[in-house]
Structure formats: C-alpha cells, structure tokens
Simulated assay, not measured.
Amino acid sequence: MARGPRRELAERIAGEITLSDDPGATLRKWRTDFDVSQTELADHLDVSPSVVSDYESGRRQSPGIGFVDRVVQALLDIDERRGGGRIRQHARVLSAGFESDIVHDLREYPATIPLSRYYDAIDATEIVAGGQDTVAGHTVIDSIEAITRLSSEEFYRLYGQSTNRALVFTSVTRGESPLVAMRVVTPTPNAVVLHGISEDDLWEHAPDLARIDGFSLAVTTLDLPDLLDGLGELP
C-alpha cells in the first residue's frame, strides 16, 4: 500500500521524537510547529495539560513509543480538522524532492498576486524594490541547511515551476550567505525575504546586491509558524 503524506509525516515526527537526545524538547518543537497549544493537545489526548507540560520540560520520564504515537496522531488530526495545511506543506516539499528540514514549504499559486499582498501576509518590510511587483509562488528555505547541503542544480530546483516567486530564507543572522548564494544562481527570483532579522540587523551590502540583480528584498521577524500560516491564507 502506498504511503501517503500523512503517514510519511507521522513517521518523520515520531522518529525525531523517539531518537532525540531531548524527546520533550523535540515534542514541544513539533507541537509549536503545528501551532497547537498544550491545552488543545491535552484535550485531544484526554489528559491534563500538566502531563504534556511535564513531558516537554523533562519532569516526567521520556515518553514511550505508545504515547509518542498518540501525540503524533493527535497533531495530525488537529491539522486535518483545521484544513490540513501542515500535511499539504509536507507533501509539496516531498514531491519537489526535498527534505522538510531544508525546505519548509514550496507552493505555486493559481494566479499571480501583488508582491505587496504577499508582504502583508507575512508582515514583511520591503528594503529594496525589484523589477517585478508580483509573485506566483513561494519557497521557504532553511538557509544554513540549503547552502551546506544542496548542489547548485538542487538549489535551482527551489524555484519550483517558475522564478516568478519569493524565496524566504530562515535561520538568517545578517543575510550574507543567502544573498551571496543568489549571485551564483541564475535566473534570480522576483523577491527574496530574510526571515528572523529586522532592517537594523541587515548586512550592509545586502541592498546593493539586491539592486544589482534586480529583485525585491524584504525582511520579517514574524514567528515561523505564523509566517507559514500567513502564506497558507494566500490563494
């Protein structure tokens, strides 16, 4: 029987928690990635919120495989009840041939949207205006994992079906690495968003590189789960 995206994601989450040196912290990471509160998860598991809190903090012995499986299925059930956004993100990333620790989301839109609308959805501030003012898709990328693990050919596949898109780089400190990487990958996207930094934190040469290559450059400090939710509300 074929393994669907839900099962593949369940296996990934359960494996990470079970093999982690700090299972409670890994459980907490996935719970927050799914934007599920301790109370909501506890209600779904029919336990008190203190049980979830104790496991996440390490006050209780590491959760067994049975409890981990219940937690994973609960997170996926809650996601499906909300429309299945996280499961679909995982499926899109896998279908593009990437690991989900490198690419958080990759999506094509049915029609182009104004870049201003895209920035509003992720609370981004444009630093440099580019040559195009629309996007037709996005890719959300862990900058460190992508730069250290992807070949130039694989890096190009981050564009998905079109370069008429925004590339969002997470795990950014100042922006040097992703913007230097953009210089050796052609063609360039319509927009590059640096996640986790403000304009004051931005590498001083970043605006000049964006102007040279003609793409819009923006920054956002929105939490990653909220950013993914904002992108999920786009058409």
Rank of each mutant, 00 (worst) to 15 (best):
V68G: 05
R174H: 13
V140S: 12
P178G: 06
I147P: 02
I144E: 06
F155G: 02
A124W: 09
E126V: 10
V135H: 02
I113K: 08
F98Q: 09
D69P: 05
L115Y: 00
H138L: 12
R82Y: 02
G196N: 03
Y109F: 15
D120E: 15
N164K: 14
T112L: 12
I78K: 09
A166H: 02
V172C: 05
L150T: 01
A121V: 06
N190Q: 09
L106Y: 00
D120R: 15
A124R: 11
E154G: 00
T139M: 04
Q132R: 08
R81A: 12
Y159I: 10
V72S: 09
T173G: 13
R165A: 00
V103G: 00
L167C: 03
P63G: 03
V93E: 00
S116Y: 11
F67H: 01
R117N: 12
H138V: 10
R82N: 13
V128D: 10
A191Y: 07
Y119K: 13
H90T: 05
V192W: 06
P114Y: 10
P178N: 14
P110V: 13
T170Q: 02
S171L: 04
L167T: 01
G130V: 04
R165H: 00
P114G: 05
V185K: 13
A146D: 05
S177V: 13
S162N: 04
I141R: 00
G130H: 05
I197T: 03
G64T: 02
Y156R: 12
F155M: 02
G160I: 02
M182W: 07
S100G: 13
E99D: 11
A111W: 13
N164F: 06
Q132N: 11
S62N: 15
D123S: 08
P110N: 15
F169W: 06
Q161V: 07
V180F: 07
T112F: 09
A124H: 07
L202G: 09
V172E: 02
G131A: 08
P189S: 07
V172Q: 06
I102V: 08
S151W: 03
G58C: 06
P63F: 04
S62E: 14
V140C: 10
R70W: 03
L194E: 03
H138P: 07
R149K: 12
L106G: 05
V135A: 05
V172D: 01
R82S: 06
L158I: 00
A96Y: 05
Q89G: 09
A129Q: 10
T170R: 01
V68L: 11
